[in-house]
Lab assay of single mutants.
Amino acid sequence: CHSECLGNCSQPDDPTKCVACRNFYLDGRCVETCPPPYYHFQDWRCVNFSFCQDLHHKCKNSRRQGCHQYVIHNNKCIPECPSGYTMNSSNLLCTPCLGPCPKVCHLLEGEKTIDSVTSAQELRGCTVINGSLIINIRGGNNLAAELEANLGLIEEISGYLKIRRSYALVSLSFFRKLRLIRGETLEIGNYSFYALDNQNLRQLWDWSKHNLTITQGKLFFHYNPKLCLSEIHKMEEVSGTKGRQERNDIALKTNGDQASCENELLKFSYIRTSFDKILLRWEPYWPPDFRDLLGFMLFYKEAPYQNVTEFDGQDACGSNSWTVVDIDPPLRSNDPKSQNHPGWLMRGLKPWTQYAIFVKTLVTFSDERRTYGAKSDIIYVQTDATNPSVPLDPISVSNSSSQIILKWKPPSDPNGNITHYLVFWERQAEDSELFELDYCLKGLKLPSRTWSPPFESEDSQKHNQSEYEDSAGECCSCPKTDSQILKELEESSFRKTFEDYLHNVVFVPRKT
């Protein structure tokens, strides 16, 4: 048989008469490798580009789960590009990614509803959504962080984005990388972005840091009482949809009607710091009717980097990364020049730590249904340095008659930039024990000054392991946590139920 035959053949030295091919099969003959313009397919066939392209389009058009959109890589027609490569849609070739590779997620039936953290986790790592997304989240724990972890990498949506009755959302900033909504599939009414009845939605994105392009379709905003109209108009300008909307697409009466839409800028007039305090004062603000001013709200939190936005980490279910302080308005003076500047002394802060701070007014709604208010920009203030805590785990070892090696770990709280350490030492008198000992005694162990690591005695271990207080009263049991108490109650309830079950099964009433 021919060298490319495997198993047997019907005619000697003829690659077209093989029972099976050793390498690849091409047009009725066995070959060692697939010549151009053919590609290896499933490690035994040679196919042309049209064959591989037909497989790709067949799966793409069917949208069946589990099928493969075949691509070409290293002269092979394979189910998908290997790690580190992405497909070129024009020629199906796998090309190296520039940075992290995109991950295209194809949605069944063309859309997916995100109504819980669990459903959001199914899209973790996706960068391109081939379909439409509907966000409908009523509640949950730590929602802002969970949504950002699972949806934060999405850069492109081919269909539309719909935010509907998501009472738990305060902001859409968890879509931190969303840059493009194509609108290839539109919501009824030709809408590519749809926001309806979101009672706590206050911000779409921080438009000073976020760009969003909507290729096709219109915007729809109705019944978002805490979303200011200025935020919607800003989205029109940034996304390129200005002029597409009709009169009733953006409701003037049901958007922002319960919001404090600040239209003035508060400026800080005085800032002073110490290692654990920050004193702030800002310019006074009074609405047209000074009785509408209820006070100020001061927001602050630790910020290692200057990239904080107002609604980071917030949701309507209680999660809030900001510390909020309510401040009463100052006494009002008739003389504008003698107006008191409101302020606040922030206490209990960490030394040498940068804080993000902003302040906003708290006002009631005027009778004319106009909203007044003022808010400052987010500023960054760093507390002063102070003395560091003591170095940890000092170790001293003498390696000769004239040297001592000293080692330690950095302090747990540096409280500033540590530039150097101060080492103090003092000579001590020799131990009298060394002169009084009889060095001729056998088995004498000389006193040693070398360091030995501390260890816990058996008594201390027994005390720590004991669940009861000892007789001397030195140790006591740790208080039980809520989960331990709940577990004990469940076990007790189970024992009672099981005992009742045994009584009912074992003891049967005697027939009379």
Results as ranks from 00 to 15, higher is better:
103 K>R: 12
103 K>M: 06
104 V>Y: 10
106 H>T: 14
106 H>Q: 10
106 H>K: 09
107 L>T: 13
108 L>D: 01
110 G>W: 06
112 K>G: 15
112 K>L: 11
112 K>Y: 14
113 T>V: 14
114 I>N: 01
115 D>N: 08
116 S>R: 04
117 V>G: 15
117 V>Y: 03
117 V>F: 12
118 T>G: 04
118 T>L: 05
121 Q>C: 10
121 Q>L: 09
122 E>P: 08
122 E>W: 14
123 L>E: 01
124 R>V: 06
125 G>W: 07
130 N>E: 13
130 N>A: 11
133 L>C: 01
136 N>F: 12
138 R>D: 04
139 G>S: 13
139 G>K: 14
140 G>Y: 07
141 N>V: 13
141 N>E: 12
142 N>L: 05
142 N>V: 08
143 L>W: 15
144 A>L: 14
144 A>N: 03
145 A>W: 05
146 E>D: 05
148 E>I: 14
150 N>S: 09
151 L>K: 00
154 I>F: 01
155 E>S: 05
155 E>M: 05
158 S>M: 10
160 Y>E: 02
160 Y>M: 14
160 Y>F: 11
161 L>W: 00
161 L>P: 02
161 L>H: 01
165 R>L: 04
166 S>W: 00
166 S>F: 07
167 Y>C: 14
167 Y>L: 15
169 L>P: 09
170 V>E: 10
171 S>K: 05
171 S>Q: 06
171 S>L: 01
171 S>H: 15
171 S>N: 13
171 S>A: 09
172 L>R: 00
173 S>W: 11
173 S>A: 11
174 F>N: 01
174 F>E: 01
176 R>Q: 14
177 K>T: 07
178 L>K: 00
180 L>D: 10
181 I>F: 00
181 I>K: 00
183 G>V: 01
183 G>A: 10
184 E>R: 04
184 E>F: 10
184 E>L: 09
184 E>S: 12
185 T>D: 10
186 L>H: 09
186 L>K: 07
187 E>F: 10
187 E>V: 06
189 G>L: 13
189 G>W: 03
189 G>V: 13
190 N>I: 13
192 S>P: 07
193 F>W: 04
195 A>M: 06
195 A>F: 09
196 L>I: 13
198 N>C: 00
200 N>L: 06
202 R>P: 02
202 R>V: 10
203 Q>L: 05
203 Q>A: 13
203 Q>G: 15
205 W>V: 05
205 W>R: 02
206 D>R: 03
206 D>H: 03
209 K>D: 02
209 K>R: 06
209 K>N: 15
209 K>L: 08
210 H>V: 07
211 N>F: 02
212 L>E: 00
214 I>L: 08
215 T>C: 10
215 T>K: 04
216 Q>H: 10
217 G>W: 00
219 L>M: 04
219 L>S: 09
219 L>E: 03
220 F>N: 10
221 F>W: 03
221 F>N: 01
222 H>I: 03
223 Y>S: 07
223 Y>N: 11
224 N>W: 01
227 L>N: 01
227 L>A: 03
227 L>G: 00
228 C>I: 01
229 L>G: 02
229 L>S: 04
230 S>T: 04
231 E>Y: 05
231 E>D: 15
231 E>Q: 15
233 H>I: 11
234 K>M: 00
234 K>V: 12
235 M>L: 12
235 M>W: 14
236 E>T: 15
236 E>C: 14
236 E>N: 14
238 V>T: 07
239 S>K: 09
244 R>K: 13
246 E>A: 05
246 E>D: 14
246 E>F: 09
246 E>L: 09
247 R>G: 15
247 R>D: 07
247 R>E: 03
248 N>P: 11
248 N>F: 13
249 D>S: 06
249 D>W: 07
249 D>F: 06
249 D>K: 15
251 A>W: 12
253 K>L: 09
253 K>S: 06
253 K>A: 12
254 T>C: 14
255 N>K: 04
256 G>T: 03
257 D>S: 03
258 Q>T: 13
258 Q>W: 13
258 Q>L: 11
259 A>I: 13
259 A>K: 13
259 A>Q: 13
260 S>L: 12
260 S>E: 13
261 C>R: 05
263 N>M: 08
263 N>T: 08
264 E>R: 08
264 E>S: 05
265 L>A: 05
267 K>S: 07
268 F>A: 03
268 F>H: 02
268 F>C: 04
269 S>A: 06
274 S>G: 03
274 S>A: 07
274 S>H: 09
276 D>A: 13
279 L>I: 11
286 W>Y: 09
288 P>Q: 07
289 D>G: 14
291 R>I: 07
291 R>G: 05
292 D>F: 14
292 D>Y: 06
293 L>F: 05
294 L>T: 10
295 G>D: 15
297 M>R: 00
297 M>V: 04
297 M>Q: 02
298 L>S: 01
298 L>Y: 01
299 F>S: 02
299 F>C: 02
299 F>K: 14
300 Y>D: 00
300 Y>F: 09
301 K>P: 00
301 K>Q: 13
302 E>K: 10
306 Q>P: 14
306 Q>S: 14
306 Q>N: 05
309 T>F: 12
311 F>K: 07
311 F>H: 10
311 F>S: 14
313 G>P: 03
314 Q>L: 12
315 D>M: 14
316 A>S: 04
317 C>W: 03
317 C>V: 10
319 S>T: 05
322 W>G: 06
322 W>N: 03
323 T>A: 10
324 V>G: 11
325 V>G: 03
327 I>R: 02
328 D>H: 06
328 D>P: 15
330 P>N: 09
331 L>F: 09
332 R>K: 05
334 N>Y: 09
335 D>G: 02
335 D>R: 11
335 D>S: 08
335 D>V: 05
336 P>L: 11
337 K>A: 08
339 Q>F: 13
339 Q>D: 03
339 Q>N: 15
340 N>F: 13
341 H>V: 06
341 H>Q: 11
342 P>Q: 06
343 G>V: 11
343 G>K: 13
346 M>D: 00
347 R>D: 10
349 L>W: 00
349 L>I: 06
349 L>F: 03
350 K>G: 05
350 K>Y: 14
351 P>M: 05
351 P>S: 07
351 P>C: 07
351 P>N: 05
352 W>G: 02
354 Q>C: 15
354 Q>R: 12
356 A>T: 05
356 A>L: 02
359 V>S: 02
361 T>Q: 11
361 T>K: 04
362 L>I: 15
362 L>V: 04
363 V>T: 10
363 V>N: 14
364 T>Q: 01
364 T>L: 01
365 F>V: 04
365 F>A: 00
368 E>F: 03
369 R>S: 04
372 Y>A: 02
372 Y>R: 01
374 A>L: 14
374 A>R: 08
376 S>M: 01
377 D>R: 09
380 Y>A: 02
382 Q>M: 04
383 T>S: 05
385 A>M: 14
385 A>E: 15
386 T>Y: 13
386 T>F: 15
387 N>G: 15
387 N>M: 01
389 S>C: 06
389 S>P: 03
393 D>E: 09
396 S>L: 14
397 V>Q: 15
400 S>D: 13
401 S>L: 07
401 S>I: 15
406 L>N: 14
407 K>W: 15
407 K>R: 04
409 K>V: 12
409 K>Q: 15
411 P>N: 01
